[in-house]
Design a protein around this nucleic acid. Structure first.
Length: 471
DNA sequence: TCGTTCACGC
DNA sequence: GACGTACGTGAACGAA
């Protein structure tokens, strides 16, 4: 049987068993949270009605005024109140997304943003759970393998793959409602840097392989050194143990990782990176910098003062700085990676398709970045799916009481019987890190997984890092 | 009903 | 020298 077909056939059966199992919802808690949010939204709306923005809005639209209408908000803000749009939508009017509104210093605008956050939680997530919960108190999210161009999965009814995580308040409200079966606990298993690992299997860049093979090395930290010119702090960083430990450096490392490295891998370029980096370190992009702006370094010095001392005095010189780093990134540090990207594109232009390691083929009209990203994104998910299938198989063969309940592209969620916890963890760890690379010889880098565990009868919001025994 | 905008995940 | 993140689901609006 064709390998790609077999993976998806077995995958859909394993995912169907997870769907059938489902996740317990605290319906009463969900309703209470909804009421609480509605009261808060009402309160914010009353406060909003006192603002100048609301008064002008009502004078323009009368009884037709609708606070949920972005078209109306855009009209009032940019055409009646004379605010200059910080950015435009695709169709050319002033944008009202969070990024744009957060740049406008008006009390009414702030209240709109606050209301939006709460409405998102209530109307997208809580309503979805209440609508989809079955009479036994469980939701059964669908996991589809037939909807996505890259041969990843999708999820719906309810969507289990976009529940808030980064925003801690939203995370708690939404995840405190999701539970395992009585007497069980939720375990989440995450592949570390899965897409980076799979990409490295395609391009085989020697420098990237070195990073992935050496657990002591730190690519994001190294890039942070370059972007923020941290040589002066070298001794401090090494003495304290790591750039990952001191919170000021940790922020710079995150800025480098999420503002430069990952966007670069996905095909973004230095100017966007400069905006993103400025957002991370809280530097203005529209005026000359002076000492005292932005985040602080551990010695109390501001990032702006530090940049200025390195002759980076404003946004434009940061753009120029990042342009050089980008050139070095692809021209020197990851030259072989860059060559693979070009080869991949040329191969698509010649053949009209690109293939994945896992036997899938993407064809049709693609842009350059897509020919590069699709095979990586797809094959990365297939690593998770293979692990999911094997775990499901062992679960049934050994008659576990534990059940797989969901999957989020590079992680899986398991409803565990506490008596079986250690065995489950060891089994999943073995399948993901030993059996997977053995089954697929194209995997030429070490595979790693991390575990998070919630207490018995705890919610999905209560998960904490979990160390395997002997680690 | 469908396109657009917005917001959440990886 | 210019160009320039990928993949989804779902809610709400508003025009057709």
């Amino acid at each position: 049987m064709n390998a790609a077909y077999k993976l998806f056939h077995e995958g859909s059966l394993a995912l169907a068993r997870a769907e059938q199992q489902g996740i317990r919802v605290d319906v009463d808690g969900c309703n209470r949270k909804k009421k609480f949010l509605s009261r808060k939204i009402d309160y914010l709306f009353h406060k909003f009605e006192e603002t100048e923005l609301a008064k002008v809005w009502r004078s323009v639209y009368g009884t037709g005024m609708n606070v949920d209408s972005n078209a109306q908000l855009s009209e009032v803000l940019y055409n009646h109140l004379g605010v200059t749009p910080p950015k435009l939508t695709n169709s050319g009017r002033g944008s009202t997304d969070e990024d744009a509104l957060s740049k406008i210093d008006m009390p009414g605008v702030k209240l709109i943003l606050d209301m939006r956050k709460l409405k998102k939680i209530r109307d997208t997530y809580l309503d979805q759970f209440l609508r989809e919960v079955s009479s036994d108190g469980y939701v059964h999210p669908f996991f589809n393998l037939h909807t996505v161009r890259t041969y990843r999965s999708s999820s719906d009814s309810p969507n289990f793959q976009n529940i808030p995580k980064r925003d801690k308040d939203a995370m708690k409200i939404c995840r405190k409602i999701l539970f395992p079966r009585q007497g069980h606990q939720l375990l989440e298993v995450d592949f570390s840097a899965l897409e980076v690992c799979v990409a490295a299997c395609y391009h085989k860049d020697p420098n990237m392989l070195k990073y992935l093979h050496d657990p002591e090395s730190d690519m994001h930290g190294d890039v942070a050194y370059k972007i923020f010119l941290l040589d002066d702090y070298d001794e401090l960083i090494r003495k304290a143990g790591a750039i990952k430990k001191i919170k000021e450096f940790k922020l710079l490392r995150n800025a480098a990782k999420n503002g430069f490295v990952f966007p670069q891998f996905y095909g973004d370029y230095y100017k966007n990176n400069a905006y993103s980096i400025c957002e991370w370190v809280k530097l203005p992009t529209d005026r000359k910098w002076k000492a005292g702006l932005g985040v602080k370094l551990p010695d109390g010095k501001s990032i702006s003062e530090h940049f200025i001392s390195k002759n980076i005095k404003d946004f434009d010189s940061l753009v120029e700085h990042l342009r050089k780093i980008e050139n070095e990134f692809w021209g020197k540090d990851f030259k072989v990676y860059a060559q693979w990207k070009e080869k991949q594109w040329q191969s698509y232009l010649k053949n009209g398709y690109v293939d994945m390691f896992t036997g899938f083929r993407c064809s049709g009209i693609m842009r350059k970045n897509e020919t590069i990203n699709y095979p990586v994104q797809g094959a990365a998910f297939h690593c998770l799916l293979w692990t999911f299938i094997q775990t499901d198989k062992v679960m049934r063969e050994e008659n576990w009481d534990t059940r797989l309940v969901g999957q989020i592209h590079d992680s899986m969620v398991i409803d565990v019987n506490p008596d079986e916890l250690e065995h489950v963890v060891e089994t999943v760890h073995r399948i993901a890190t030993v059996e997977l690379p053995r089954a697929w010889d194209w995997i030429i880098v070490p595979m790693n997984v991390e575990f998070e565990l919630a207490p018995v009868d705890g919610s999905w919001a209560d998960k904490k890092d979990y160390e395997r025994r002997g680690e």
